[in-house]
Design a protein around this nucleic acid. Sequence first.
DNA 1: GCCGTTTTCGGCCCGACTGTTTTCAGTCG
Length: 636
Amino acid sequence: MDNITIARLLDETAALLEIDAADPFRIRSYRRAAEAVEQQTTQLSTLVPEPKQLLAIAGIGKGMAANIVELVNTGTMPLREELLTKYKPTMLELLRLPGMGPKTVALIWSSLQVADIDALEEAAKAGHLNKLPRMGEKFTTKLLKGIEDYRKNSSRFRIDEAHDHAERISALIFAFPGIETITPAGSLRRGRETVGDLDLLVTGPACEPDVVAAAVEHVASLPLIDKLLAKGQNKVSFTLRNNLQVDVRLLPRASYGAALQYFTGSKMHNVALRQRAIKRGLTLSEYALLRLEDNKIIAAASEEEIYNALDLDYIPPELRENGGELDAAANHTLPKLITLADIRGDLHMHTDATDGRDTIRQMAEAAIARGLAYIAITDHSKNLAMTNGLDDARALAHIKRIREVDAELQQDLAELIEALAKDTPPINSRLTNLWTLLKDTSSRPERSEVERPLYFAGATTKSDPLNFRILPGIEVDILGEGQLDLDDSTLAQMDIVVASVHSRFDQPIEQMTDRILRALENPHTRILGHPTGRKVLKRDAYAVHIDQILKRAAELGVAVEHNASPARSDLNDLNLRLAKQHNCKIVVDTDAHATEELDQMRYGITQLRRAWLTTADILNTQPTAEALLSHLRSKP
DNA sequence: GCCGTTTTCGGCCCGACTGTTTTCAGTCG
């Protein structure tokens, strides 16, 4: 049994205990244990023979360790079984409906014997709920609407989609005079791969208490609102047509830091933080950090003040998961997390030679405009016929072409440097586009704070364009027995060989793992592409095997790819932490198929930050192509 | 059920909004 399953069963038990009206603190400890289990990089099932190691995990005590041992050995545990004789597992789904909490679920079960969504809908329509306390007409209407929405769409939104919505909504809110800052909080700010809803915190003169009502009205009447869910003194909740829920809070400057801290979460991080406050005679809320004895405000305007007042270093949002960050912040041992500006090259991208849209030169120019010092062109190999994959002859011709484009670019860049120094447009017509790109990005208006979590420093001028290099490479396919689908003599010509499995994962996991392990042994393999198999496999089922793969890659000095694009990313923060533990080299890249996709790098960075990674853990932070190449496939 | 500068018992995080409550319980974040 893998960690994800253990965590789910503990969490379900917590929900059942809630319905059973058990001791709230006992319930909390089950929840806390579930979260702790989820964050472990070692599979707990392997620790069962030595339960002492389970006790070392914060939030796991004697009783919970016994529960875990029982779960691993038997697939269930006594408390869970006992609760399931009293309640039905389908009741857990009811808890996901808006307005349905444990008390309500328990009440409709005990009075109406209703335990699943279909029966609940029937009961609501028949008016049976109205006989119960606190469930009038309005409640029923809302519930039926909730059931409809739940059936239509119960999924979370990818971080890039949520980010785009945040930008759109923010632009509309900014139209109101007196709005200065909009920051997305919640899981978007923490850089989670997916977000359940969008929290936007708004501040500025228009948000001061005496005038905020007008701004609230403005937000509540935004044209993109599909359904208005709630409107309070300083809060507006609504959904978009795609069912994404948005909570907008308008807050005075003075308490903005406290609000930002509070609404960024995570919930468990905040609980731990407030416990720390209480031990110091303080109390923390979304308005301020107060001294208990006289209600004096200790800190409120900025997050930094709040953390510092609690004797903590500032904790970056990506680490706020109650996964040891409080201890590290107290001991001044938080890592200096990697930033987008630290990334010097992108080692996986496609061109119009296969399934990309743009040319080699266009990709290179886009990379220069983004401040990179090198890229690798890694088009597909022949086994991916649908992408017009390259056979040996075409692959060789392609890297010849890449070298030519690189040489030409070197000459042009020398000219460009002169032109930039004189600040006069270059005569060379090949440089027109690059000139515009550089001028455009460097004069890009200061972006609003809405992008702060994802857009780090623009990084347009930090590299010396003269040092820019295009590395010839290929994304080669791993065939059934682990062999690569191009000749060794061809691969020997490439600087960057990304070996990836593309074919359908209809093999058993063991076989697929074996196949990948064999591909790692090929001396030409520099980077293992999408190591968890493009999400075709369920991540949890794969957990044990990724461990093996990362370990072997580390031994062989093969780097493992972390795809930055949310659409393709497959190494989650746990896998990345595991890679670090194994001392595995990590490369973050975009797998771009068009120039603008190079911007996806920012999403990959948040995942790396969530895994506590620094520049030392990531290979393509090397300042130059030469430095990078000397590290690839060098034995540890 | 966990945990310890309150250490083997007695604590355990905070506030707003909603519905139908005429003083508050339940839900949510």
